[in-house]
Amino acid sequence: MNTAALSLNNLTVCYDRHPAVHHLSGAFASGSLTAIVGPNGAGKSTLLKAIMGLLPATTGRIDHAALARSDIAYLPQQAQIDRQFPITVLDVVLLGHWRRIGALRAVTAELRAKAVAALAAVELNDFQRRPIRSLSAGQFQRVLFARMLLQDARLILLDEPFTAIDARTTADLLDVVRAWHAERRTVIAVLHDLEQVRAHFPETLLLARSGIAWGRTAQVLTPDNLRRARQMAEAWDESAPPCAVDP
């Protein structure tokens, strides 16, 4: 196996003392392409947020010592973005250069040309001047992928990137994901469509708060493992006693 880009060591992340990710250990190999699947409330999004440092680890550690913050790109679920905001497609994509432009530096002609090229790569030629509110959900997801192309990150985290996205856009954006994989970038995606996972993602983490299975996709997505994942109770047990596993 390769060196790990990211390793989890007995990680527990809680909301209000109730664990959403429970004693999870393992590693995402450098250059791997991993799908995270599991039932609703299994802690998939929570895990990505914890990796981004948006949620604190209750116990355990997340190690990505070799990666700086600017080496990580994160695509949260779409709901958090104001799609009526008065901003053009090109301006959104240019934000992918944040590491180079920050709050104050100018956008050079070269950076602008790269943004236009990124838009072309997701097949949005001639969309530069369009306000984002005129875009469909699929087109907007393409814009966000173009922005991530410019971020040029070593580790890419995608939270349900293809939910409510049409089939054609999904296929095109999966091509982008595969290109990232070919460039030896580490990609982790939360997904629901098991067929898609089997077809495109070599590694899978099956999560039901605890890790059910983690490894080659074919060995993880077995009927037995999926049944065990489904048995996870979705509701919190309000009277649950403190966890007895060693911290």
Partner: peptide
């Protein structure tokens, strides 16, 4: 003028600003 760019990003896509800065 000084805080224009981050202010706009923070209001359009706060998650992105958090992830890059």
């Amino acid at each position: 003028a000084l805080i224009y760019r981050p202010l706009i990003v923070e209001c359009f896509d706060p998650g992105f600003l958090q992830s890059v800065q």
